[in-house]
């Protein structure tokens, strides 16, 4: 198949960017989207041009490194990461618009690469259980209800790709934050820090310049891991509880 790419090109963080049109002939429908970009980059390199900067690492949908807007859909038309998106999801002759995640808290580094370090700082603000190495009690000393463990796991599968932010009309990272708050808040081990965790994480979230959540649900709809929307309610409940208790 043949496609036309319109790709965001931006030489550096402080330079103006623009959409560049690139014709891509002979695309196999079995290629992943990133493999298609690999082929394009090889051609650009041999033509003496700069290849498109794009991040990816594990290419099996779990590291969360890859992620671009494809036709204004985070990760493209399939609910999976870009590395798991295959060209069979597109039509022959289609024009595909590719842009970086856009949010104030995710400045563009180059072309399609953005800086998502804000996520790390949100986790550092409280997205953990303080359990110094060696201090752990025997694993079976605290049973956990299977339903809680499963629900916690569902929330814990977040890969921090940033699709939720890119898709959110408010540029909010509430789903990302809520996933961690819910994961740790549902487990007995997470109780002692539950209140301070949610408040500190939300403060950091706001400080990073992410927007407020208006409960629209675009985040969940594009989330490659299907982090449930109800985690955001859980976050809100935990936050109100913590505020009312005066934490």
């Amino acid at each position: 198949m043949n496609i036309t790419l319109r790709v965001w090109r931006q030489a550096g963080p402080d330079t103006e960017g623009h959409m560049e049109t690139i014709e891509v002939p002979d695309v196999s429908e079995h290629m992943s989207f990133l493999e298609m970009i690999d082929v394009v980059n090889d051609r650009l390199t041999l033509e003496g041009k700069e290849p498109i900067a794009i991040d990816s690492d594990c290419r099996e949908g779990i590291c969360g490194t890859c992620g671009v807007m494809i036709n204004r859909q985070a990760h493209g038309p399939v609910r999976a990461t870009v590395c798991q998106l295959h060209m069979r999801s597109f039509d022959d002759g289609e024009t595909i618009d590719v842009e970086p995640w856009r949010a104030d808290a995710f400045p563009v580094v180059k072309d399609l690469v953005v800086d998502r370090s804000a996520f790390d700082r949100i986790i550092a603000a409280g997205g953990y259980i303080s359990a110094p190495t060696g201090s752990a009690p025997e694993a079976h000393s605290t049973p956990v209800k299977k339903a809680d463990a499963d629900h916690a796991f569902d929330a814990a599968t977040c890969i921090a790709c940033g699709a939720c932010v890119a898709a959110c009309p408010n540029g909010s990272a509430m789903l990302f934050t809520a996933a961690k708050v819910t994961h740790l808040g549902l487990l007995p081990q997470g109780q002692p820090e539950r209140g301070s965790r949610v408040l500190n994480m939300i403060n950091q979230h706001d400080e990073e310049g992410f927007g407020g959540c208006t409960n629209i649900g675009e985040c969940t709809a594009v989330c490659p891991k299907g982090i449930p929307f109800d985690t955001i309610s859980q976050l809100n409940r935990d936050m109100l509880g913590a505020l009312l208790r005066g934490e």
Binding site: N71, D97, E99, A103, D104, G211, G212, T214, E218
Partner: peptide, 27 residues
């Protein structure tokens, strides 16, 4: 205040493409 914050956080007209301007599922 929230709208202003949202405009800073997400930007107005943040994506160049004209496609899917109404989002994936939003009402």
């Amino acid at each position: 205040l929230l709208a202003r914050r949202s405009w800073t956080s997400a930007g107005v007209n943040r994506y160049e493409t004209r496609r899917n301007r109404r989002g994936i599922q939003r009402t």
